[in-house]
Design a protein around this nucleic acid. Structure first.
Length: 575
RNA sequence: UGGGGGAUAGUUCAACGGUAGAACUGCGGACUCUGACUCCGUCAAUCUAGGUUCGAAUCCUAGUCCCCCAGCCA
């Protein structure tokens, strides 16, 4: 741990007690004695990487377990071998851990329960509550009815128990090809709830399962696996998103018709939506497969792995989730809310460094050639314990191109011809001359410095309106800096069908010629650092010893740039 | 004229029959060797119409609008 890390305490937000309708239910159940000890679970399907939407569920489930002195299981819901992979199983565990949660020894897989689930399916058959259906997928669909019309009973609905048992066992034995038959619950083909119109319990799938290999030829559906898995694990409160509300009657039906070891209850909450972001696994998978991003952990991705690589600290994700709350109303959270929590977390811990992203050469004409001075710079303005470091100053420097304007507007306080500014930690300098190339572009500034202002203060008490950052030409190191912007250009990108049209062509901007003070390199991969006046950055794993690469996690708030943009918009509207 | 949910500032969430609050955002200001941070101030909401009640965001009735469901996905 470098100085500065963990220097400050928890935020006010993290000290406040969470209250939401689910926690109210848990508290009431504990108080009434209906629940003795709360058990929750986070049940992702290992068919992709976890994203910030999952973080909401993770924080909810693990958070409730923690707060109420209970337990939260990590359960991989691996009931569909055609979509699931070991890579995802590994990534999910890594990401939950990174978020700061610990499932102890309670790592489970739905596939651990395949044998038990199979037994329960036979129980249902013996009770006359399930049957093997020979209809094709298409016939089943047609006979299911519509939203307004009831379905029709399958011609195979009244097979005998013996025949059903025999057929089901043959299904398990692998005697039939994919799709030949399914096992269905016998409930009510006329139910207004389509999930109750004889839902499929088992389908034939000749596929390789990452954990059970080819041992099974039939696999339970989500509905048949989920509630019973909860019951096996003693889950008391099974939390899921709103779209499963319709499944709750079916969830309950299985638990009531089967000899299960416990009686969990399902509760639903609204999933997270974010502006400028798409959080469907379908879209994220396509972004990766279609090469729109470099991988699941592309720093522009809303995946946990992407956020981590981008330099977002886990406490920021947790704090964000806390701030957005939990409710049943569909909503879209403003990305600005997330940005705020990221900046807040980073501001507390990130060490400060100086880096010039788009260099403009400055020569201090009255500074002796060959002279080099070491100046003190603090590592963190609010944390003396973070210490300080030395920065070398010399005659030739780089400043930010944006910090100079030849013809500045009124409110521009930075460098311009004749203007004096402070070079942070160094001297006051005044711009005397502007050097241009043949194309008329500014390529160098000729300045003078005031030796009396060493360290940044004028003995005569005179003030400057701006302090700008800089590096010494011969004492700085070159680096590549990648500035990240939202992956999507619109706050409400199109859905799964046309998301590609809304991709932001400027989601990544590569600054190949950035110059850093050498101390900027003493941060580890993914460790946040603030490049002063610009934003929070972290060193990326693409770095090599002679080619450091930094990623901009997020820029600093910039009210000046905002004002400029506002004035420009106003001028345009007026003219 | 199927079933299940939901509607409170611009956004997200509180208020659980008793003064509609917070955070983010916006706006204004103070401070500042980061136009950052911090601090202070401020604008801003109960979907509609009835009803019950001393009193309604909350209870009742009737509407309106939004979301989800017709996978052998989860």
């Amino acid at each position: 741990m470098l100085p500065g890390e963990g220097a400050t305490g928890d935020t006010a937000a993290s000290e406040t007690v969470n209250r939401d309708f689910i926690r109210d239910i848990v508290a009431a159940d504990l108080e009434s004695g209906r629940t003795r000890a709360v058990v929750t679970r986070f049940p992702p399907e290992p068919n992709g990487y976890l994203h910030i939407g999952h973080a909401k569920s993770i924080c909810l489930n693990f958070g409730i377990a923690e707060e109420f002195g209970g337990q939260c299981n990590l359960r991989l819901d691996d009931t569909n071998p055609t979509k699931e992979e070991q890579e995802y199983i590994d990534a999910i565990q890594r990401d939950v851990r990174w978020l700061g949660f610990d499932w102890g020894s309670n790592l489970f897989f739905a596939s651990d329960y395949f044998e038990r689930l199979y037994g329960w399916a036979e129980d249902l058959i013996r009770a006359g509550k399930a049957y093997v259906d020979d209809q094709s997928q298409d016939e089943i669909r047609r006979n299911r009815g519509t939203l307004t019309e009831p379905g029709r009973n399958s011609p195979f609905r009244d097979r005998t128990v013996e025949e059903n048992l025999d057929l089901f066992r043959r299904m398990r034995a692998g005697e039939y090809p994919n799709g030949a038959r399914v096992l269905r619950a016998k409930i009510d083909m006329a139910s207004g709830n389509i999930n109750l119109r004889d839902p499929v319990l088992y389908r034939i799938l000749h596929a390789h399962h990452p954990r059970t290999g080819t041992a099974w030829k039939i696999y339970p559906s989500y509905d048949f696996a989920h509630g019973q898995s909860d019951a096996i694990e003693g889950v008391t409160h099974s939390l899921c998103t709103l779209e499963f509300e319709d499944h709750r009657p079916l969830y309950d039906w299985f638990l009531e018709n089967l000899d299960v070891p416990s009686r969990p209850r399902q509760y639903e909450f609204a999933r997270l939506n974010l502006t400028y972001t798409l959080l469907s696994k379908r879209v994220l998978t396509e972004l990766v497969r279609g090469g729109h991003v470099t991988g699941w952990d592309d720093p522009r991705m809303p995946t946990i792995a992407g956020l981590r690589r981008r330099g977002v600290p886990p406490e920021a994700v947790r704090d964000f989730v806390k701030r957005i709350g939990v409710a049943k109303a569909n909503s879209v959270v403003d990305m600005g809310m997330f940005d705020f929590t990221v900046r807040e977390a980073l501001n507390k811990t990130a060490l400060r460094r100086m880096a010039v992203l788009k260099p403009l050469k400055v020569t201090i004409e009255n500074y002796p050639e060959g002279q080099v001075e070491e100046l003190d710079a603090v590592n963190h303005p609010d944390d003396a314990a973070a210490g300080s470091r030395k920065i070398k100053f010399s005659r030739e420097l780089f400043i930010e191109q944006d910090d100079f304007m030849e013809n500045p507007p009124k409110k521009f306080f930075r460098l311009s011809p004749g203007m004096e500014v402070r070079l942070r930690y160094a001297y006051f300098v005044t711009c005397r001359d502007v050097v241009k190339n043949a194309a008329g572009e500014v390529v160098e500034l000729r300045c003078t410095y005031d030796p009396a202002t060493k360290g940044g203060n004028a003995p005569d008490g005179r003030k400057v309106k701006a302090t700008i950052h800089w590096v010494s030409v011969s004492h700085s190191v070159a680096a590549e800096v990648r500035v990240l912007n939202p992956l999507f250009a619109r706050p409400d990108p199109g859905g799964a069908e046309n998301f590609a049209a809304d991709l932001n062509p400027e989601s990544i901007e590569v600054l190949a010629d950035a110059r850093l003070e050498p101390a900027a390199l003493d941060v580890a991969i993914e460790q946040p650092v603030q490049f002063e006046r610009q934003g929070y950055f972290c060193r990326d794993r693409d770095s090599t010893p002679d080619h450091p690469v930094f990623i901009r996690t997020i820029g600093l708030r910039d009210t000046f740039a905002k004002d400029v943009a506002k004035d420009a918009a106003k001028g345009k509207a007026g003219g």
